[in-house]
Lab assay of single mutants.
Amino acid sequence: RSRTTFTAEQLEELEKAFERTHYPDIYTREELAQRTKLTEARVQVWFSNRRARWRK
């Protein structure tokens, strides 16, 4: 699998969701996946990476 490139629109959606919760449940992730046209797995990994960046 090659590296996922996120569009500005996708990042906006993901960042907005991250402001609400750092640990979205499966329903939230599924909804985000549909809205951003990404897979739920990509959304999950993005949140994991985003939390790592947030901790630094």
Results as ranks from 00 to 15, higher is better:
residue 1 R to G: 11
residue 1 R to M: 15
residue 1 R to L: 07
residue 1 R to I: 15
residue 1 R to W: 12
residue 1 R to D: 12
residue 2 S to Y: 08
residue 2 S to F: 09
residue 2 S to T: 11
residue 3 R to M: 14
residue 3 R to L: 09
residue 3 R to T: 15
residue 3 R to I: 13
residue 3 R to S: 13
residue 3 R to K: 15
residue 3 R to C: 12
residue 3 R to G: 14
residue 4 T to L: 09
residue 4 T to P: 09
residue 4 T to G: 06
residue 4 T to Q: 05
residue 4 T to M: 15
residue 4 T to I: 09
residue 5 T to H: 06
residue 5 T to M: 15
residue 5 T to R: 07
residue 5 T to W: 09
residue 5 T to I: 10
residue 5 T to G: 11
residue 6 F to H: 04
residue 6 F to G: 03
residue 6 F to L: 14
residue 6 F to A: 05
residue 6 F to T: 03
residue 6 F to P: 12
residue 6 F to Q: 02
residue 7 T to V: 06
residue 7 T to C: 04
residue 7 T to P: 03
residue 7 T to R: 05
residue 7 T to H: 03
residue 7 T to M: 07
residue 7 T to A: 05
residue 7 T to F: 07
residue 8 A to H: 03
residue 8 A to K: 10
residue 8 A to T: 11
residue 8 A to N: 12
residue 8 A to F: 09
residue 8 A to P: 13
residue 8 A to L: 10
residue 8 A to Y: 08
residue 8 A to R: 12
residue 8 A to S: 12
residue 8 A to C: 05
residue 9 E to G: 09
residue 9 E to V: 10
residue 9 E to D: 06
residue 9 E to W: 10
residue 9 E to R: 12
residue 9 E to F: 08
residue 9 E to T: 08
residue 9 E to N: 07
residue 9 E to S: 08
residue 10 Q to W: 02
residue 10 Q to P: 01
residue 10 Q to N: 10
residue 10 Q to I: 15
residue 10 Q to A: 06
residue 10 Q to G: 05
residue 10 Q to K: 00
residue 11 L to G: 03
residue 11 L to K: 06
residue 11 L to F: 06
residue 11 L to Y: 06
residue 11 L to C: 00
residue 12 E to D: 13
residue 12 E to N: 13
residue 12 E to L: 10
residue 12 E to Q: 13
residue 12 E to Y: 08
residue 13 E to D: 04
residue 13 E to W: 05
residue 13 E to A: 10
residue 13 E to P: 03
residue 13 E to F: 05
residue 14 L to F: 02
residue 14 L to A: 02
residue 14 L to T: 00
residue 14 L to Y: 03
residue 14 L to K: 00
residue 14 L to W: 00
residue 14 L to R: 03
residue 15 E to A: 04
residue 15 E to N: 03
residue 15 E to Q: 05
residue 15 E to I: 03
residue 16 K to F: 03
residue 16 K to Y: 06
residue 16 K to R: 09
residue 16 K to L: 09
residue 16 K to S: 08
residue 17 A to T: 14
residue 17 A to E: 15
residue 17 A to D: 03
residue 18 F to W: 14
residue 18 F to N: 01
residue 18 F to Y: 07
residue 18 F to V: 01
residue 18 F to P: 00
residue 18 F to K: 01
residue 18 F to S: 02
residue 19 E to N: 13
residue 19 E to T: 11
residue 19 E to V: 08
residue 19 E to C: 09
residue 19 E to P: 01
residue 19 E to Y: 03
residue 19 E to M: 11
residue 19 E to I: 05
residue 19 E to H: 09
residue 20 R to Y: 08
residue 20 R to A: 12
residue 20 R to H: 08
residue 20 R to C: 14
residue 20 R to D: 07
residue 20 R to M: 14
residue 20 R to P: 01
residue 20 R to Q: 15
residue 20 R to S: 10
residue 20 R to V: 13
residue 20 R to N: 11
residue 21 T to G: 10
residue 21 T to F: 05
residue 21 T to N: 05
residue 21 T to L: 05
residue 21 T to H: 02
residue 21 T to W: 13
residue 21 T to Q: 09
residue 22 H to A: 11
residue 22 H to R: 09
residue 22 H to T: 03
residue 22 H to V: 05
residue 23 Y to C: 02
residue 23 Y to W: 08
residue 23 Y to V: 06
residue 24 P to E: 11
residue 24 P to Y: 02
residue 24 P to T: 01
residue 25 D to K: 02
residue 25 D to C: 05
residue 25 D to L: 00
residue 25 D to T: 05
residue 25 D to G: 05
residue 26 I to D: 14
residue 26 I to F: 13
residue 26 I to M: 14
residue 26 I to G: 09
residue 26 I to L: 14
residue 26 I to P: 10
residue 27 Y to H: 10
residue 27 Y to L: 13
residue 27 Y to G: 12
residue 27 Y to N: 10
residue 27 Y to W: 11
residue 27 Y to T: 13
residue 27 Y to A: 15
residue 27 Y to R: 14
residue 27 Y to Q: 07
residue 28 T to I: 07
residue 28 T to L: 14
residue 28 T to D: 12
residue 28 T to K: 01
residue 28 T to R: 07
residue 28 T to V: 13
residue 28 T to Y: 12
residue 29 R to P: 01
residue 29 R to Y: 05
residue 29 R to T: 09
residue 29 R to G: 00
residue 29 R to N: 04
residue 29 R to W: 05
residue 29 R to L: 14
residue 29 R to S: 06
residue 29 R to D: 00
residue 29 R to A: 08
residue 30 E to Y: 13
residue 30 E to N: 14
residue 30 E to V: 06
residue 30 E to T: 09
residue 31 E to G: 06
residue 31 E to V: 08
residue 31 E to N: 06
residue 31 E to A: 12
residue 32 L to V: 08
residue 32 L to H: 04
residue 32 L to D: 02
residue 32 L to R: 02
residue 32 L to A: 01
residue 32 L to T: 03
residue 33 A to N: 02
residue 33 A to V: 08
residue 33 A to R: 00
residue 33 A to L: 03
residue 33 A to E: 03
residue 33 A to G: 03
residue 34 Q to H: 14
residue 34 Q to A: 08
residue 34 Q to D: 05
residue 34 Q to M: 09
residue 34 Q to E: 09
residue 34 Q to L: 11
residue 35 R to K: 15
residue 35 R to E: 04
residue 35 R to A: 07
residue 35 R to W: 01
residue 35 R to V: 10
residue 35 R to I: 07
residue 35 R to P: 00
residue 36 T to V: 12
residue 36 T to F: 06
residue 36 T to I: 12
residue 36 T to M: 15
residue 37 K to C: 08
residue 37 K to W: 05
residue 37 K to A: 11
residue 37 K to Y: 06
residue 37 K to H: 10
residue 37 K to P: 01
residue 37 K to S: 13
residue 37 K to Q: 13
residue 38 L to D: 04
residue 38 L to M: 13
residue 38 L to K: 00
residue 38 L to V: 08
residue 38 L to A: 05
residue 38 L to Y: 04
residue 38 L to E: 02
residue 38 L to N: 04
residue 39 T to S: 13
residue 39 T to C: 07
residue 39 T to V: 05
residue 39 T to Q: 01
residue 39 T to K: 03
residue 39 T to H: 04
residue 39 T to M: 05
residue 40 E to Q: 04
residue 40 E to V: 10
residue 40 E to R: 05
residue 40 E to S: 07
residue 40 E to T: 07
residue 40 E to W: 04
residue 41 A to G: 12
residue 41 A to H: 05
residue 41 A to T: 06
residue 41 A to E: 15
residue 41 A to S: 13
residue 41 A to P: 06
residue 42 R to E: 15
residue 42 R to H: 13
residue 42 R to Y: 09
residue 42 R to I: 12
residue 42 R to Q: 14
residue 42 R to T: 11
residue 43 V to W: 05
residue 43 V to N: 04
residue 43 V to P: 00
residue 43 V to I: 06
residue 43 V to Q: 04
residue 43 V to Y: 07
residue 43 V to D: 00
residue 43 V to G: 00
residue 44 Q to M: 14
residue 44 Q to T: 13
residue 44 Q to A: 15
residue 44 Q to K: 12
residue 44 Q to G: 12
residue 45 V to G: 10
residue 45 V to D: 12
residue 45 V to T: 14
residue 45 V to E: 14
residue 45 V to I: 11
residue 45 V to Q: 15
residue 45 V to P: 04
residue 46 W to M: 01
residue 46 W to L: 01
residue 46 W to D: 00
residue 46 W to S: 02
residue 46 W to A: 01
residue 46 W to G: 00
residue 47 F to E: 09
residue 47 F to C: 00
residue 47 F to R: 01
residue 47 F to L: 02
residue 47 F to M: 10
residue 47 F to A: 02
residue 47 F to D: 00
residue 48 S to W: 05
residue 48 S to H: 14
residue 49 N to L: 10
residue 49 N to H: 06
residue 49 N to F: 07
residue 49 N to W: 13
residue 49 N to K: 07
residue 49 N to Y: 08
residue 50 R to E: 11
residue 50 R to D: 00
residue 50 R to A: 11
residue 50 R to S: 02
residue 50 R to P: 00
residue 51 R to H: 04
residue 51 R to L: 06
residue 51 R to S: 00
residue 51 R to P: 02
residue 51 R to W: 01
residue 51 R to C: 03
residue 51 R to A: 02
residue 52 A to P: 00
residue 52 A to W: 09
residue 52 A to Q: 09
residue 52 A to F: 05
residue 53 R to D: 14
residue 53 R to G: 12
residue 53 R to F: 11
residue 53 R to W: 07
residue 53 R to N: 08
residue 53 R to H: 10
residue 53 R to Q: 13
residue 53 R to M: 15
residue 54 W to C: 14
residue 54 W to Y: 13
residue 54 W to M: 13
residue 54 W to K: 09
residue 54 W to D: 14
residue 54 W to I: 14
residue 55 R to F: 15
residue 55 R to P: 04
residue 55 R to L: 11
residue 55 R to I: 09
residue 55 R to C: 12
residue 55 R to H: 07
residue 55 R to D: 14
residue 56 K to N: 11
residue 56 K to T: 14
residue 56 K to R: 12
residue 56 K to A: 12
